[in-house]
Every structure is written in C-alpha cells, then in structure tokens.
Computed example of a mutant assay.
Amino acid sequence: MAFLELDHVSKRFGGHVAVEGFCLSVAKGEFISFLGPSGCGKTTTLQMIAGFLDPSGGAIRLDGRDLARVRPARRGLGIVFQSYALFPHLTAAENIAFGLEMRGVPRAEREARVRDALAMVGLAGYGERHPRRMSGGQQQRVALARALVIRPDVLLLDEPLSNLDAKLREDMQIELRQIQRNLGTTTVLVTHDQTEAMALSDRIVVMSKGRIEQIGTPHETYERPASAFVSHFLGKTNEFPAEVRPNGSGRVLVAGSCRWPAPAGPSGAVTITVRPEKVAFADGTADGLAARIANRIFQGNHWLFQCETECGAALVVRQNNGERQPAEGEAVRLVWRAEDMGLRRGGEA
C-alpha cells in the first residue's frame, strides 16, 4: 500500500501548466528523487506535497489521509531547503530544537533529542556554535538534523547539496543515504544532478515540461531509458540510425556494417542507443562498426575517445588499465553487446 500518493496532480499558473497528470505511489521508507532540468515542475510538485502550493487538480494522500485541507505545519513533514534557512542568531542546538519547542516537547526530552540529532549528523560537540562560525557542509548537517529531529513522516529535500563543492557534495551524499537507511524515513529529493539522483535513490522520477517521462530504479532509467529525453539527460549516449529487416524466418538489425539479431519491437527505421562505457574497440577482428579516432581526452581514471563512424559521431569511454590506447587518426572498429543496446523507433523523441 502506498504511504505517499500523488493522484493525477496538476498545477497551473494562469495559462501556464507547471505540472500535469502527475501520478506516483511511494512506499514507506522509500527514497524518491524528482529529477529534471530547471522549469520541469519538480520543485512545484515538492511544494504541493509540503502544502506551500495548492494543486489545481488531483489529490495528495499521506498514509491514506487527504492533505487538501491540512496546513503545512500539520502535515508531519521535515523540509531541508537549498539555502538551509538557519536562524543566524541561534546556535546549532537551538536551531535544531526550534521545531520541538513549537510542538511543546518537554525540555529534558528536547535536549536529549537534540544531542542525538547532532551525533547522528556527525556534529557532536558543535551545539553551541552559531551558523556564521560553521562551514557550508556543517550548516547543511544542522539543517538536516533540524528536519529529522521532529521525526517526520516524510522528509522533503529541495536541492540541499547544490551549494556544496564537488568533493563535499559527494561525501554528503554517502552520509545522507546512510542516515536515511538507518532511520527508514520516507524521503523525496528534488535535484537536477543526475549523479546525485542515481547515488541516493531507490527510484527516480524523471520530469520534463511538467510531465513524468519515466519512473524507475537508477539502473532501469540509465540502462533502459523510455525516451530520447531520458537517454540524454541521464548521461552521454551514442545514437546510430539503423533498420530492422526481415531475415528468413527472423529479423536482423542493421547499422552500417554491423548486424545483430533484432529484438522484439518495432520494424523499419529505428535508432540504436548505447552508452559510451558499453562500447569497446574490436581486438584484431573485422567485426564491428568502422571508425576513426578524431580526438582522445585523458580524464584521470579513464580515456574519452571521440570517434567518426559511417553511422555518425560516437563516444567511447575506456578505462585506463595500462594497455596501449588508440592514437588520434587511427582506424578502429567499435563493438558492443546486443543486450547493451536500447532500441527506439526512428525519429521518436
């Protein structure tokens, strides 16, 4: 049974449709990410869950309770904003205790829960510091502790890591996921960062222009994108025009000089999609797609090759394992496994 449910939720601002037909069921303890570019409706959807915006249509239910007439403060939600929104004149401990005070929690219990919350986010001993004396990462932890100390039914995260530098953001992703797993708090994250969504989520809701493009696990959405938008938004991808042709009793998939048994699906003109890390250089055979190395870029733990092929441009990612790497201008052949391909009707977006 769904713990948090959005049933055909929509939001319009005058003639502008910000969210349309949003349907999602979230299990208790699940970590969900709303992922998409700016203006896709992900923050608007989060604000409707929080109660800051009223839906123009549809329903939002939490544990079977319709939230339509429930004020934000009564919804039992914890929220962490992009700006953290800490009170500068209060210490870390006082910031964390604020929600407990508003709920009338007795002082002794309040102090114990604040100590536990500080320890949970790795800030034991920092309770008397003010936000101005704390780093961005420490302020983010205080904001997270403040949201969790009230023991919310659902934790809402509005791009909380976007202000951190890359290394700290990666560290905080690991810590945030561990905290969420330990507590079992149902969590909804808004982000435009594909890596962040894939690192943290049980499922990802990919959005574009106010609509859901795909819902799936990180592996499903990356490996089997439902549309060209999802394929490109979740990372680099190669696309090759191809054709499915009859072949005796079966069918064959043809792209340039490459041929594979055609999977079930469309016939005629199609587009093959394959991620760059799935592509390899053929080893001393005539198999694969003929290509020439146009450019190669060393990126630390791997090489990125830009290739020209008879089917168009291609990217190849190859791990730097000490073997000789093809030189610029060198003729190669590109190969990949049939099971690593996606297949889309030709011209579909």
Rank of each mutant, 00 (worst) to 15 (best):
M1A: 13
L4W: 01
E5A: 12
H8R: 15
R12I: 06
H16E: 11
V17Q: 11
V17H: 07
F22E: 01
F22H: 07
S38P: 05
G39R: 02
C40P: 04
T43L: 03
T43I: 07
T44V: 14
I49S: 01
I49Y: 00
G51K: 02
P55D: 11
L62C: 08
G64M: 10
D66T: 12
A68G: 06
A68H: 12
V70N: 02
A73L: 12
R74A: 14
R75I: 09
R75W: 07
G78D: 00
I79T: 08
I79L: 15
L86D: 00
T91I: 06
A92P: 03
A92Q: 03
A97C: 11
F98T: 05
L100R: 02
G104N: 12
G104D: 13
R107Y: 10
R107H: 13
A108H: 09
V114I: 09
R115Q: 15
A119N: 10
V121C: 05
L123R: 03
A124M: 10
G136M: 10
G136R: 06
G136S: 12
G136I: 08
G137M: 10
Q138W: 11
R141W: 04
R146Y: 03
A147D: 02
L148S: 00
R151H: 09
P152L: 03
V154Y: 01
D158Q: 03
P160M: 08
A166T: 07
A166P: 04
K167A: 15
L168R: 06
R169T: 06
E170T: 13
L176E: 00
R177N: 07
Q180K: 06
N182T: 14
T185S: 00
T186K: 02
V190A: 01
D193N: 08
Q194S: 10
Q194R: 09
A197G: 04
S201Y: 04
R203K: 15
I204R: 00
K209V: 11
G210L: 04
Q214D: 04
P225G: 05
V230F: 03
S231G: 10
H232E: 11
G235I: 04
G235N: 05
K236L: 13
K236P: 01
N238R: 06
E239D: 13
V244M: 07
V244P: 00
P246D: 15
G248C: 09
S249C: 09
G256W: 03
G256Q: 07
S257G: 12
P261G: 06
G265T: 10
A269P: 12
V270D: 02
I272K: 00
T273F: 08
R275W: 06
P276L: 05
P276T: 07
E277R: 07
K278P: 00
D283R: 14
T285R: 09
D287Y: 02
G288C: 08
G288T: 05
L289R: 01
L289A: 05
A294T: 12
R296W: 09
I297V: 12
Q299Y: 13
Q306G: 11
C307V: 13
T309D: 04
T309Y: 02
C311T: 13
V316W: 01
V317T: 13
R318F: 02
G322Y: 08
E323K: 11
Q325V: 15
Q325P: 03
P326W: 04
R333Q: 13
R337P: 02
E339Y: 09
E348Y: 07
